[in-house]
Design a protein around this nucleic acid. Structure first.
Lengths: 187, 187
DNA sequence: ACCGTAAAGAACACCTTGTTCATTATCAAA
DNA sequence: TTTGATAATGAACAAGGTGTTCTTTACGGT
């Protein structure tokens, strides 16, 4: 890929991320973005169809990466003991978040957090389907499988949101315990 | 209140609701709204500062009403048996939703559902704090109180979302069972 | 050194926003 | 039913955003 393209794309992502962490998505204009990124109007539209597509591309880059590292990870059965050293997928995700790759925490704690939590949840749902549901780990529950998938994804994302909103005082291990305590008994 | 004002306000709300159920909030212009409501531009701005305030007013009317009917409702302890005829706050809310007051279901199942689910969750959180947390019903849990409040609110809203997205095939009683099965064990 | 291509910059038509003002219609109370 | 108040209308406006087109300039890869 042409270095010029890569540089422009990076500049736009970076400027956009900065803007997203300080003002509402709907109030950000393409003008704001190209001013901050210091690129021409034409250049922006050569890279992205609209502001919405820019957002989509950014999210795919952010969450695609995080979720992929958790895919196919060796993990124990969802039914693990609280005290065990379970290296669950969830713990892995929390640790990954803690690293704050590409300023993802800025975005997840900004006033635009809902946008990103939605993408996060949607990717997580996929992950849980392939890592748990498809392997039949939810079979012995009385609740419908898709209700369970939805409940677990939502609960995890909401746990992450709670954790971040409280400045991530707790360790990833503690948060995993909270989450497992809240969701494990239902299975 | 002047009948003219009431009529205009109602026309705008109604047109806005119709538009919300068919297109994305961000793509709806004030122009669209006043055309649909058949009111003058000046009139719109005499009633609402901006499109965002119109949304806020609509939500307050929608959820304020539903939540109020659940406030101070006689309810059993959160720990109820599955088989009991628990007339929980949650069952009450589901039944109320089923009535589809003011086309709330159209909004909750539209592409703009996130907006309304957010308002719903925020109001529900208040309700759970005053109806459960403040009465000390969460004291004997190892999890932090605000984590619990958040978890329960989110789980209920997400259950409602799941229910609606599947065309509400199940009865309110069944859904209450799902929800209680998913959240009760943690307390 | 060269060709291909990306970026810049200006100009554009079009739409949306929120406001102002003069005019008309409607309401509520006497 | 008259009257004073107030709500709604319609036209016009500046300001700003959008997405596109075109020409010129600068840079990258071979």
């Amino acid at each position: 890929m042409d270095r010029r393209q890569a540089k422009t794309r990076e500049a736009i992502f970076s400027a956009f991320t900065a803007l997203l962490s300080e003002k509402n998505y709907s109030k950000i204009s393409v003008q704001d973005i190209i001013d901050a990124a210091n690129v021409g109007r034409t250049t922006f539209y050569a890279h992205f169809e609209t502001k919405d597509y820019l957002l989509k591309d950014l999210c795919e880059e952010l969450f695609g990466h995080i979720i992929n590292t958790a895919m196919g990870l060796p993990h124990e059965h969802y039914h693990c003991n609280y005290g065990s050293k379970s290296d669950s997928v969830f713990l892995h995700l929390l640790r990954h978040l803690q690293k704050n790759d590409r300023n993802i925490l800025e975005l997840l704690s900004s006033q635009n957090n809902e946008i990103f939590l939605r993408y996060f949840k949607s990717n997580l749902k996929e992950l849980i389907i392939t890592e748990y549901a498809d392997k039949g780990l939810f079979r012995n529950s009385k609740l419908p499988e898709d209700y369970l998938v939805n409940h677990i994804s939502s609960s995890f994302v909401e746990t992450v949101e709670w954790w971040i909103s409280r400045k991530m005082k707790e360790s990833p291990e503690e948060i995993t315990q909270y989450f497992l305590a809240a969701t494990e008994p239902i299975l």
